[in-house]
């Protein structure tokens, strides 16, 4: 499934134009990105939480050459699915 499929579902369910549906999807994605960029979590009840975590510097290795390289400190997004979501995907 892709963004266009999601927009299409909104078009069918909500009664907005296709153009509007896809604009709304972009707006929401931009909103989520800007919230995460600020380091704030996004909590979706029944779905899960997107959390920004900071990782320290560490040494890594190029798996192909075995060469040692430094990995700079960085921020990553982790997704923790809710219990409801985890149960749902395991139902037949």
């Amino acid at each position: 499934m892709r963004k266009a499929d999601i927009a299409n579902e909104i078009y069918e369910k909500v009664g907005v134009s296709k153009k509007e549906a896809s604009d709304i999807v972009e707006f929401i994605l931009d909103l989520l990105k800007s919230v995460l960029q600020k380091g704030e979590s996004v909590k979706i009840a029944g779905f899960g939480n997107f959390v920004v975590r900071s990782k320290g510097a560490r040494k890594g290795r190029n798996p192909r050459t075995g060469e040692e390289i430094g990995i700079t400190p960085r921020r990553v997004v982790t997704f923790r699915p809710s219990q409801v979501f985890k149960k749902y995907v395991n139902q037949p």
């Binding site: 999601i6 369910k13 909500v14 979706i44 779905f47 749902y88």
Partner: peptide, 15 residues
């Protein structure tokens, strides 16, 4: 309805 549809469709697609 829009916001719920987005997350429900991700969930349904994985299901």
């Amino acid at each position: 309805l829009v916001v719920n549809t987005i997350f429900n469709s991700v969930r349904n697609s994985l299901h």
